[in-house]
Amino acid sequence: MNGFTSVFKRELKAYFSTPVAYVFMVVFLVLSGSLTFRDGFFQMRQASMRVFFSNIPILFIFLVPAIAMRLWSEERRSNSIELLFSLPITTAQAVMGKFLAAWSVLVLALALTFPMVMTVAYLGDPDWGPIITGYVGSVLLAGAYLAIGSFFSILTRSQVIAFVLGVASCGIIFLLGSPSVMSGMSSFAPIGFVEAMESLSFQTRFESIQRGVIELRDLLFFILLIAGWIWANIILLEERRAA
């Protein structure tokens, strides 16, 4: 347990003692806010945050890998990984410590969008269900992207490569459920395959959660996905720690 808490605390401190967390949060808040107003937050004349949440998955495709890329690449490049693993810390503890610290930063960034909630509450009488589930969905989505990004950060010493691979993978998994990809796939693939791909898509799951009802299968989808990628993180790190 010492291993986990020490890594978690160290990582969290590192985000705030360097400009990483601040830059990330400012960029995220500016983009998420401005996209919401660009897409007609006022014109809709509804007290809802639908517009706000609809942009989150696309924003996160770029922003979450930016947080994830430094998790292990940096550690490998500066060789501090050798110091880290000369301490009595297991691979699983180190992976979880780093992952949860980064996830906390993302959750904090989401929490800082609270003025949006206040605006909606001030202007009308919003339906709170979709707002709450929208946040839950966003947090889970951030975790899933982060676990994927962290995997690629273990794979390479170069933060640029880790970032590009992270963005590409998150983008592909997200877009699996979009209409254009699905119609493209259905032109050659059997319908069962297309439906399977759609059910694997972040977009489908995220939209389902965002509607205001959290179904167990959507929740399980994200939890299993995060757990699976974390597990892959641990296996890969055991394998490539010194490479």
Partner: peptide, 28 residues
């Protein structure tokens, strides 16, 4: 075991005290 690795790797963004505290915490 106490181990000093080649080129003394360390976390550049931490203070010296911060790093020693981290090592102590990891070692319980």
């Amino acid at each position: 075991m106490g181990y000093l690795a080649e080129n003394a790797p360390a976390y550049d963004e931490m203070s010296v005290l911060g790093m020693l505290k981290f090592v102590c915490e990891a070692r319980g």
